[in-house]
Design a protein around this nucleic acid. Sequence first.
DNA 1: CACTAAACGAGACGGTACGTCGAGTCTTGGA
DNA 2: TCCAAGACTCGACGTACCGTCTCGTTTAGTG
Lengths: 213, 213, 213, 213
Amino acid sequence: MTSPSEPAPRTRGRPRSEVARQAILDATKTLLETATVRELTIEAIAKKAGVGKSTIYRWWPSKAAIVIDTFFESMAPLTSFSPSESVSDAISQQIGRLIESYRGRSGRIVAEIIAEGQTDPEVLADFREHYLLRRRAAARELVEHGKTTGELDPHFDSDLMCDLIYGSIYYRLLVGHLPLDDAFAQMLPQQMLSALQRGASDTASQPDSSSPS
Amino acid sequence: MTSPSEPAPRTRGRPRSEVARQAILDATKTLLETATVRELTIEAIAKKAGVGKSTIYRWWPSKAAIVIDTFFESMAPLTSFSPSESVSDAISQQIGRLIESYRGRSGRIVAEIIAEGQTDPEVLADFREHYLLRRRAAARELVEHGKTTGELDPHFDSDLMCDLIYGSIYYRLLVGHLPLDDAFAQMLPQQMLSALQRGASDTASQPDSSSPS
Amino acid sequence: MTSPSEPAPRTRGRPRSEVARQAILDATKTLLETATVRELTIEAIAKKAGVGKSTIYRWWPSKAAIVIDTFFESMAPLTSFSPSESVSDAISQQIGRLIESYRGRSGRIVAEIIAEGQTDPEVLADFREHYLLRRRAAARELVEHGKTTGELDPHFDSDLMCDLIYGSIYYRLLVGHLPLDDAFAQMLPQQMLSALQRGASDTASQPDSSSPS
Amino acid sequence: MTSPSEPAPRTRGRPRSEVARQAILDATKTLLETATVRELTIEAIAKKAGVGKSTIYRWWPSKAAIVIDTFFESMAPLTSFSPSESVSDAISQQIGRLIESYRGRSGRIVAEIIAEGQTDPEVLADFREHYLLRRRAAARELVEHGKTTGELDPHFDSDLMCDLIYGSIYYRLLVGHLPLDDAFAQMLPQQMLSALQRGASDTASQPDSSSPS
DNA sequence: CACTAAACGAGACGGTACGTCGAGTCTTGGA
DNA sequence: TCCAAGACTCGACGTACCGTCTCGTTTAGTG
């Protein structure tokens, strides 16, 4: 996106204006308070930021890219886990925090970024790389650690576990058939953890036939 | 949407042209073979269908509504369950079929409809009512039935189970971090079922406190 | 023997509805109180008259034709001359009345009909035949009579005189560079008559050459 | 210092494209060869000129405004008088040239601009200011000069004379009851001049009373 | 009195142009 | 070389009417 590092040192000519960059992100953030990503327009951002449109096009490939940058910059500080807790508690807490944060504007914007990504693969890739995979890796690590401590049954696939947990959250966020309420925030980790405990999966490892390793 | 039943018999004036309706849906279907929902244009539909734009606007509130109708009309016959099977098999089969169908165009269109729905609540509501809830109700029933036969632990919340299963599928469909491949289609029901079997959830009903460490 | 005149006597079937005809003209008149002919639409007339559009199209070839009918029906009673007056007085009075009547809505509608006629020759023909020529014939007769009484110089062409008088009025009506005010209504006949009196035109009959400098 | 006159110097941003402006006027002129002003379409102009519609809307308030500009640019060079002639000859010649030029496309377009002006006051004002008044002022000056040379009777109102002459021409142009033919082109100045000569108007200045019967 | 045929209201139909909006590009002068 | 400003081409938007076309419903005269 705006990684200024790679292609060339670029020392000649007027350097990129940090003021403009920040003004664009600020304007985007402000506009997103009263508009959806879809309604957001490059022209509106340029006008509000006091910036030429070409300055925007020079540095971002799409509207969604700006939104993603804006989102990272100011709305999505990566919450770190408290390492002292038990794995179960850490998972519960992490799920709870995510659900809570997705109830408001953050949730809407994530949803709209994903929506935007259905049309533009780069947006989706950006979203995954810069936002989602980071969190998912942490979650996966947590799950893996839970397996070593015995809190989680090692027969279950870690990726699948992550998909089950996150999937149900994004499902509700995106489809909206049921709310992301407190009840859900409690029940989801509770039942998930109890289902995935050691001993719950006597038959979990049989893929289809009798492959007792 | 265009359900001709309810509001009025409407016997006055020239009746709605079934030919036009079908032409519009056909044109939409054809255009969706080479374009995304986002790229799809009302004007293109009208032109391809040989229809005035106003005829479209008269009967559909939005582009997405046409796509939904088109999708229902020709792409999404409701797959029924084979009632003779065991609940586990039925679930596995149903999951497998859904994942398979979501690998192609159907999946893309569902994804794009959901994306469209992030901006337009009516689209999302339409999608839920006319498509999703129908299937979900069937799935939920299956789960409930599994509880009575003892194949599934009754301590688990049925809605939550559905969210876990469907959620992980839609998650992969929409976010694309991992594919909807055969491995997933096999592992998902397998591990889910083993996790939710009776006896897996000794602690499932305790709300929050004092899980035996 | 009942010469059926034009196309057919047309005796079978439901006869034309006088109610509808009148409703259409009334609606048109009402709408013209707040709209220009240009802004007037057939659809608005039909709606206001409680009439199907096809009923209008069945009997009138164009919007302007309806306006012309409306205009004749209710706004343009042919003012007759007082035969007892002198020709000069009659002309003055006639000019005065026309100018006065053209200051208001009548003038606007006449102007807009002529405007409409610039595009549609039939409208212009209708206007001439049903409205203008009638009046012009009367005016011309008056002029001719003035020639016999000696009030007007017979060397002047009657048609030209009419064009000069009416022309200047329509000119101001249509171009609006100067108003159709009382000063104009007084000066026009006064100066015209004095210029066209007998004796004013010693050289009027010389076709083209050598006017005595 | 050097106040740049009217609204703004406007030196920022991309300057207006003269190429586009000319293309629009050219396209309009071409289209007017086979279509009336009414039939003329902004869309057609844009297409033919290879120009975005918004470029047209940015610089012209209405279709008629473009037509007026086109007309001025290429169709209506102001014919100058030969100063050496007698006033009578100058008037005759001027009338003759106007009538002749109004027989063809110029006449149609002037008529249609005036027609357009019946609905849009700005169009009419534009037409008067940029086209008509210029000519009328010249004609009025000629008339005034004729009064000083004794060729025209100073008792007659100069504006009225102009209205009589031009009025009759526009009258025939717009109403079409009689043609703008050579006979008219000869007779109009001839009879006008003879009627307005000195001595023709002994009574011209008496406002209303006691005209000798 | 029943039949017939045209006129009627309603309103959907295929079109065309409207005027607006935003996209992404280009072209100035100035920093 | 970047920047702001803003004009450029392009194309879709949703709307308004056009004039035509079915419908089912009057409404006379005719048979």
